Computed example of a mutant assay.
Amino acid sequence: MVSEYSPSRRSLLKAASGLSAAVALGAGGVLATASAAHAVGDGFGLRVAERGENDPRMWYYRFETAEIGWKPAVNVLLPDDYHTSGRTYPVLYMLHGGGGDFIEFDRAGIRELTAGKPIIVVMPDGGKTGWYSNPVRSNVGPRNWENFHINQLIPWIDANFRTFAEYDGRAIGGFSMGGFGALKYTAKYYGHFASVSSYSGPASLRRDGGLVVHWANTTSALDLGGATVYGVPWDQRRVSADNPVERVESYRNKRIFMVAGTAPKTAFDWLNEPEVLAGQREFRGLLDRAGIPYEAHEDGGGHFFRTEFFRGDIDGIIGRLRKA
């Protein structure tokens, strides 16, 4: 395994903690913590259509929303002591990969991986091939995943759970398509997330003739009835807005964690990981030149969610965010 760690990260993050209050979300720059989730309800364009709150840690909701033409769901994983502590917690948003859904990380063992950790983990649907975007066009009704996550789900979570509704209270991560979504949301919505983690997520859309954009368009057509996320021809402004390597300054003063595989073994791996690895290396080079610290790992194997890296990453995330 090859690892990189930028030695100035610790000092810059310490400085960032003072800056982050200035970029926190909310009117007038003043944010109050959310009240306890006594009776989770509707709001922010979301109507709760189904709920499951019997498990002490993993709560489930399905919504009706004008932004999505079917009922997307979310798993909310609570800390062990959430119901007894009265404390307010930071939040990690975890975005699933292509072909996955809101229970992808539950299958991967996230309950055990976060046992005893003082953090809420929110795991929403993002469409089988939604690419965490509002598509240029859809032939099957609304599929505005970006609007759903940013404008509806985040404020709904903050209104219904005891969260720090601010920059220093939120992190985001994801696998594959979700790793891209995490990098994209972090850059486009600078004041939302203080930490970003990309597990085999593409960081460069235009390299190799725009191979990742072509892949996004081809796969998204399955969800969009033949339409595409970026359009044909491409909406170039939208590609640039979503492309991490074109948004390098937007990652300044944030904690950045990346991992990619170096040894594809299957045809599926070969379709994904070499492009992911090359794009992350390109991104790392640009971060180096900009003097922006990060933590990055290259690991043997192909395209899969690396739980052994998540174990260390979750502690780094909690260390960066406001303490419960």
Rank of each mutant, 00 (worst) to 15 (best):
V136E: 02
A108S: 13
I119R: 10
A115H: 10
G109C: 14
R137C: 04
N139G: 05
T114M: 14
G127Q: 02
G127A: 03
G97S: 08
P118V: 14
T114K: 12
G127F: 01
T129Y: 09
E112D: 13
V122P: 00
G109S: 14
G99S: 09
S138F: 03
I110F: 12
R107E: 04
G98V: 06
D106V: 14
R137Q: 11
R107N: 08
N139V: 10
G127C: 05
I119T: 10
E104G: 12
V121D: 06
G99Y: 06
V121Q: 12
I120G: 05
V121G: 07
N134D: 11
K128F: 14
E104D: 14
Y132K: 00
W131D: 00
A115T: 13
A108E: 12
R137L: 05
N139Y: 12
N139M: 11
S133T: 05
G100H: 14
P118M: 11
H96I: 03
D101H: 07
G99I: 09
N139E: 05
I110W: 12
P142Q: 06
V136M: 04
G130F: 02
N134R: 07
N134I: 09
G130A: 02
A115D: 08
A115G: 09
V140A: 03
G127H: 01
P142K: 06
R111C: 08
A108P: 07
I110G: 15
F102K: 02
G99D: 15
L113I: 10
T129N: 07
N134E: 07
E104F: 13
F105N: 00
N139I: 15
E112C: 11
